[in-house]
Computed example of a mutant assay.
Amino acid sequence: MIISEGSKRLQKQKPVICLMGPTASGKTSLAIELCQMLGGEIISVDSALIYRDMDIGTAKPSDEERSAAVHHLIDIRDPSENYSVAEFRDDAYELLEDIYQRGKWPILAGGTMLYFKALLQGIADLPATDDTIRAQVNAKLKEEGAPALHEWLKEIDPKSAERLHPNDPQRISRAIEVYLMSGKSLTQWHQEQALQKFPYDCLQVALAPQERSILHHRIEQRFDTMLQSGFLEEVEKLMARGDLSLELPSMRSVGYRQVWLYLQGEYDLEQARYRSIVATRQLAKRQLTWLRSWEEVNWIDSLSKNNCAIILKSLSNISI
């Protein structure tokens, strides 16, 4: 992407704020507060908020919240459509340029860590799967087993073979397929990805309560609020369309799958509630695991009352 000279000057004045964190940690309210203090605009980093007509179960910002601060990348896809990580990266870059051009402060806020990773660390534009090559690799797997596949990977991509467990046939197969389709190892693809430097100064903030029990309580409370706000009716309307299924990324969002199965009679409402809360807790755990391995991230407690001030102080300490 070409960054204009005007944008280069602005980006030196206004580092991008990346507000990350697990679900139900309070990112939306803090992002809005930052927008109001800094004259900013929010770019949503959430793979569920992109879908129209999925408002309650995604905890989408309310009309009042969206009038308090400009939000981008919300309601940009129908639930029947896909939206790739690469598309997010392209859209986010375009929005960053536009926000800087208008003299505003960009705030990336959300919990889809794969989106943040693609934006900040680059993305390997891996070749699409080829059915013939996949069949070839699967045949070897079936005939000789995962250890033989791992030995094959050692010959063509030793670093990936060292990284992947011998009993992980799915990832080993994919690494071999990438090499057979492109002539380049997965390691080489990732090395090229690392060269895609994020062109903006950036402050990365992780928002989460210090006690995991607090987050679990918030998740449970929020799901009960969703039920009271008409979440069942929302999923009923989506089912009634007739063109959606549980195979789509939109319907695999936490809560939607469980409520869908409840409405199909797979289990009762209490089971749907319990399974939804457990799935959301598991999502939060994965998000926290990502963040703990993240470099250059500043942790702040969701329960602190001066988080805006903490972030502003961190901004002033960035060497530009």
Rank of each mutant, 00 (worst) to 15 (best):
I2Y: 14
I3A: 02
K12R: 08
P15L: 04
P15Q: 00
A24F: 07
K27D: 06
K27E: 09
T28Q: 12
I32E: 11
E33Q: 14
C35R: 08
Q36Y: 08
M37Q: 12
S44H: 07
I50L: 11
D55A: 10
A59P: 00
P61G: 08
D63S: 14
D63H: 08
E65A: 07
E81H: 03
N82A: 06
A86C: 06
L95Q: 11
W105E: 06
A109W: 06
L114V: 14
Y115F: 15
Y115A: 11
A128D: 13
A128N: 14
V137T: 02
N138Y: 08
G145H: 03
A146L: 06
E162C: 05
R163W: 08
Q170M: 13
A175T: 10
S185Q: 12
A206T: 02
R212H: 13
R212C: 10
H216I: 11
H217P: 02
H217T: 15
T225V: 11
E233C: 04
E233H: 13
E234I: 08
E234Y: 02
V235C: 05
K237E: 14
L238D: 13
L246H: 10
R252V: 08
S253C: 13
Q264I: 00
L269D: 00
E270Y: 04
I277M: 10
R281Q: 15
A284W: 01
T289N: 04
T289I: 03
S293D: 12
S293W: 02
E295T: 06
E296Q: 10
W299S: 00
N306G: 11
C308K: 15
